[in-house]
Write a protein that binds this DNA or RNA. Structure first.
Ligand SMILES: NC(=O)c1ccc[n+]([C@@H]2O[C@H](COP(=O)([O-])OP(=O)(O)OC[C@H]3O[C@@H](n4cnc5c(N)ncnc54)[C@H](O)[C@@H]3O)[C@@H](O)[C@H]2O)c1
Ligand SMILES: NC(=O)c1ccc[n+]([C@@H]2O[C@H](COP(=O)([O-])OP(=O)(O)OC[C@H]3O[C@@H](n4cnc5c(N)ncnc54)[C@H](O)[C@@H]3O)[C@@H](O)[C@H]2O)c1
Lengths: 218, 218
DNA sequence: TATTATTCGTGAATTAATTCTCTATTGGAG
DNA sequence: CTCCAATAGAGAATTAATTCACGAATAATA
């Protein structure tokens, strides 16, 4: 119910693609030309058929007995994830997490180009962090309208997240990457993705809890 | 194939639980005593039956016409996620991301107690960051053996991730929260959870790509 | 007190995702 | 040149997850 939009690819598959890319990038560095599903599945502890189905989503065609071209596969996966085009982004909230994201060069490989950062704390405004200028958040909406900005990254606290999202919507930003633990309310044509670190912690600790009880039962 | 272990709860459900917790924590602040699945489902744009099934995993029992006790539900979800006990953790790699994690107080609410941090860069060693001492990584294994450390957090680059994981395994750490884009090889009784930020970016950009093509077709 | 609307809980039905099975292709070994 | 082993690809079967449908409980209201 109420799934705003139906996107074509199965999410579980989509979530596995970046891991394939990590393996492939390493293989490219090692000058390997071809790779098989079996190889990838061994690297990542997945079922080879699952890998094959996932890769098929990208439209790649492999050669029997040989596998897929590493280079072509990288390109196809990147295209599928939308990482083959540059996207301009604004980041709001230059705190601990915001600063870390600004310093992460790998995002450029994925087409994410953070052009300017914003905060409301006067101590941060005017600084340049990892080459990115920090301006007052009041200037964000107008700047977004003037330049074309595709993605807004929210790394403010949860209290401020909705108001920042509103400013982004006013600036015609169509994709929001939200790190605050808060459900954002936005128009239908804006896509929100919540990056929830705590989910990952929960998966870890709940598995640890289960393996403890297993031990107790023995 | 080769799923190392089968854990009882469906992962999709487990991944939704932290979001329920966010809503519930807010309701607790607002002094609400009871909450229904319908309410939660509206907040998070989910199906109410799905919410009900997820919550049932925690063993909570609701009252018809009223819903669930907010306080009890919080406790049950925390217990289910393994967030009701304190776990001692070491963090290795006090760079951009490592520093951000050290400064994130919310993790304490989830039972994560980062007791010491480690690096190999002499400029970082000896500092205290957000109240956590930074020591040389060589001391990590012995300290882990001496104190009981449950979780190891890896925030070094991908090149160093495996060697750090090896040190953690030697220190009898049984859960590894890995932020490096690298598949770690560990013994069967060690649980690894990969926190992959790029996955979330991929979900966002691929959805943006699809909604663009939709527009072009109109 | 009787009625009504809301919500939980559960089993069935549906849909999605994964895994299995089989065929065809192809490069390399004999 | 022939055979073999590895692999892609596609459809079927299975398993997992989600959604639907309905009965029972209960607080609020008439
Ligand atoms: N630090 C982490 O490891 C971590 C992990 C998971 C989630 N998060 C989430 O990420 C967000 C940021 O976390 P953090 O640790 O970096 O917090 P932080 O307090 O270090 O940074 C928040 C920054 O946002 C700025 N800010 C606040 N309100 C603003 C507004 N209205 N407009 C512009 N700027 C504003 C503050 O000045 C500050 O610089 C939080 O929502 C947090 O829950 C952080
Ligand atoms: N910064 C981000 O936003 C971000 C996002 C996603 C993933 N990651 C991943 O997290 C990891 C850390 O990223 P970062 O941006 O903080 O990098 P960083 O370079 O800022 O920090 C890495 C730290 O690890 C230390 N280190 C390196 N080798 C070590 C070793 N063998 N033992 C102990 N310490 C060692 C370095 O001295 C440095 O302090 C990387 O694997 C990166 O891919 C980072």
């Amino acid at each position: 119910m109420r799934k705003i939009r139906k996107f074509s690819a199965p999410e579980p598959s989509m979530r596995r693609l970046p891991a394939y890319l990590h393996v492939l990038t390493r293989l490219l560095r090692e000058n390997r030309l071809y790779v098989s599903c079996t190889f990838i599945s061994n690297e990542l502890y997945l079922d080879p058929t699952q890998v094959r189905k996932d890769l098929a989503l990208t439209g790649i065609v492999g050669k029997p007995r040989v596998g897929y071209s590493v280079e072509e596969l990288i390109d196809k996966i990147k295209a599928f994830l939308g990482w083959d085009v540059q996207r301009n982004a604004f980041l709001v909230g230059v705190g601990n997490l915001g600063t870390a994201l600004l310093g992460y060069q790998r995002f450029r490989l994925y087409g994410l180009n953070i052009v300017t950062a914003f905060d409301k704390d006067p101590r941060r405004i005017g600084k340049t962090i990892f080459g990115v200028d920090v301006l007052h958040v009041d200037k964000m909406t107008n700047l977004a309208l003037r330049n074309k900005i595709d993605i807004g990254i929210i790394t403010v606290g949860e209290d401020a997240a909705q108001e920042v999202a509103d400013l982004m919507v006013q600036g015609f930003i169509k994709g929001i990457w939200n790190f605050a633990p808060k459900t954002l309310i936005v128009p239908d044509d804006v896509i929100v993705e919540n990056a929830q670190l705590s989910v990952s912690l929960g998966v870890l600790t709940s598995k640890m809890k289960l393996s403890q009880t297993e031990k107790n039962m023995v």
